[in-house]
Design a protein around this nucleic acid. Sequence first.
DNA 1: TCCGAATATGAAAACGGTTTCAAAAACCTG
DNA 2: CAGGTTTTTGAAACCGTTTTCATATTCGGA
Lengths: 337, 337
Amino acid sequence: MSTIEDVAKLAGLSRTTVSRVINNHPYVSEEKRKLVMEAMERLGYVPNSSARSLRSQKTELIALFVPRIMNPFFSQLVESMEIAAAEHNYQLIICQTRYSSEKELNYMNLLKTKQVDGVILASIQNDWEVLEPFLDYGPIVLCNEFDEQANVPSVMLDQVHGGYIATKHLLEQGHRRIAYCRGSTRSNVANHREIGFRKALSEYGIVFDEQYAFRDTLHSEDGRRVFHRMLSLSEPPTAVFTGSDEVAAGIISEAKKHGCKVPDHLAVVGFDNQAITQLMEPTITTVHQPVEKMAQKALEVMIEKIHSRTYRQREIYKFPLKLIIRGSTVTNKLAKL
Amino acid sequence: MSTIEDVAKLAGLSRTTVSRVINNHPYVSEEKRKLVMEAMERLGYVPNSSARSLRSQKTELIALFVPRIMNPFFSQLVESMEIAAAEHNYQLIICQTRYSSEKELNYMNLLKTKQVDGVILASIQNDWEVLEPFLDYGPIVLCNEFDEQANVPSVMLDQVHGGYIATKHLLEQGHRRIAYCRGSTRSNVANHREIGFRKALSEYGIVFDEQYAFRDTLHSEDGRRVFHRMLSLSEPPTAVFTGSDEVAAGIISEAKKHGCKVPDHLAVVGFDNQAITQLMEPTITTVHQPVEKMAQKALEVMIEKIHSRTYRQREIYKFPLKLIIRGSTVTNKLAKL
DNA sequence: TCCGAATATGAAAACGGTTTCAAAAACCTG
DNA sequence: CAGGTTTTTGAAACCGTTTTCATATTCGGA
């Protein structure tokens, strides 16, 4: 394992000059540059990144916090973020909080120990006042998830609008008893969708009915459970808005199993526009989220913060959501394609 | 940002003693240990990990190579691996090769630059002779994917058996014209499954028919395409074995759309036992892979290699696969549950 | 009581780079 | 050609730990 010293010796130059060549600094004569390049080549030299990080105080590593990767929405986010990071010569460290505030807090130490240059939170499990002090050690950027108190950049989607257009679509189809499945209780994303949901209802003069609200629905199994609980109501809903395509798929699957026709007996709207929406029969009406754009933006903002070294600044970058109408809400054959 | 020096000064001791306390070394009196702990507490001291890595020559980071995260099989692998890593106080760096040999080679430099302690390959895009030289810089462990030439530990699944039991099941259901969809052309996992597929066929005296073979099928869209190509054959197959549940789902979705009944007109076997197998109608017969166990084992082996510092040793750890029979191959109502 | 072993502590070297600072050489400009 | 600027180079400091080595103290057994 050769060091910069070995290269310097072989080239008959100083460490400094070798370092200059490595880092493309100006003021190195073409002649010496060549000597250095040759020596590096001959020795198969590669700079040690720990040594680099120690001196230059940067690791080129960014930590990405997600609740769990298996959730297709977060898979997509991680995938997009990794690609964006690679393009900027950063590596991504994955941190699964598994919805646990302790795990999140524990991973936060990556920032304290300077193991990463910054943290991107796509999920928040602690109150902001708990997270805020970590800003002493490096930048935090929120991506998708957000917090009203947070004095940091947030790259997010217009979830209020998302909840609104999905619900309005159901209302326009004539539905009046609409159930609502939301995700994690403490998620602000889910909160905003609920605001949009309520807004649409109120425009139609409908009051939010608590018996139609289901919380902490995350997987297809939750969807199946919700279907049965809906069925057991004295006045079952004729439509349901869900916080994820998986939950929607679970509901549809269970509905079909019990002879309940979708969308005729029960219309279903998903969220995320995952692959499954095109595979289910009927295909699932859903809300498309520009995950890739959001990930790219979050990464850009993060890099900017790393360089500018100003971490405590609230900034909002918001992207729009789009309703995609498919078979689970309309019988129109054309829409099914 | 306080350093170990600050702690030492505040405690009235040397850096050495503080370091001993941090690393739980013996030969520190209880009295001094307390002094150090107090000083660390007071200053909110956390050791700098770059400095640590530089001196101790270990980063506690492991790179995991996958083609892409969105593929549910790899999502699951990453998720399990991250959990296993966290339990051993390691962090995971995600590297998506996107089926590109250059990207893979590029990421391999993480080992050279000592940015990671080891590399786990769940996907291989280069010939082994290209990868082998990197063993000079650290351990490589193969996980799921493998290479006949590789002189390193491989944690894998019995893919030959997987292909065999899935195909045998179709044969037992009376099918004789069985199509075969495999994944990436250069994948040995796919190769082994094909061996198992052929073995089952030959036991029934059937010769492998190239017109029934479809290569590089990865997504549900590929499945849809395959369905149409199968349909256009003079003697369409009555069953199809696929290398992934997504492809199976794509075939089933397209079949249903065109009035082709599954399993009556076409039986379909998937692979991976992903969530979608329970959501499709019919549910999908598939092969369950013990991904979590495999990930845990791979990580354990990796850590063992990091410590033992012997990297060039071929070792095979093989886990069994299990066929799960569902509605896409049998009409029996019971099996559908 | 004496001596070797175990315990306890610190000074200094080492890890492998980058950055600062100083100085030498080359280049202008009037 | 004097004097200033730009280009080129290297010595040494520095980043913040861990490790090595030396030394001092305490302990246990003969």
